[in-house]
Amino acid sequence: MAIDWGPRASAGWIKPAIFVLCLVPFARLVVGAFMRTLGANPIEAITHSTGTWTLSFLLITLGVTPLRKLAGWNWLLRLRRMLGLYAFFYAVLHFLTYIWLDQFFDFAAIVKDVIKRPFITVGFTSFLLLLPLAATSTAAMVKRLGAKNWLALHRLVYAVAVGGVVHYWWLVKKDITQPAIYAAVLVVLLGLRLLFRARERAVAAMSGNPARSRAV
């Protein structure tokens, strides 16, 4: 039987398949922790892994709209919420790792860190900004807020992504190769949005309609 790659695929097998795939990094950490294969400094390995996967899922989520527009795959939109929630899932794990495994609930030290260490301030702020996005991710919340307000609120994700990259950039000791890669991808994803917007404006101007910036 041929695999269905068509528009209905997302409703069928693609979404559950991606759901499971997104859990693989988490599963590897759990297995690694039990098998003791996370290296000499497992807590650092967990911190780094959950952190980089948070950033990756943020960027993947931000990639949905450009890819949909460029490739014409409208069904991708149906994955966006799930991918965004996975970003949140890994962010929660990252945050818990810091609070629990790294600092072991030393709240005095944590408060000091958040206030004194710019990279933690930025990371913590980005995490806080993710909370309302996760909380309003349900269809009922979209309805309650109204599409316009909901879209406005969810533009926060741009700030979260920038904050996440800055958080990474500021924490590395000296070799900025990895954060620079994330930054470059983010610049491309945000740049594409500006391009789309400019093109839409141009089209609107030519057809005599007032420019309306399209959402996300």
């Binding site: 990094p25 690694g32 294969t37 780094h48 892994s49 996967w53 960027l59």
Partner: peptide, 15 residues
Amino acid sequence: MLIKRATDIQPSEIT
């Protein structure tokens, strides 16, 4: 994109 190399489980590390 794939990122984390640190958590790769190499067979040699297990043995």
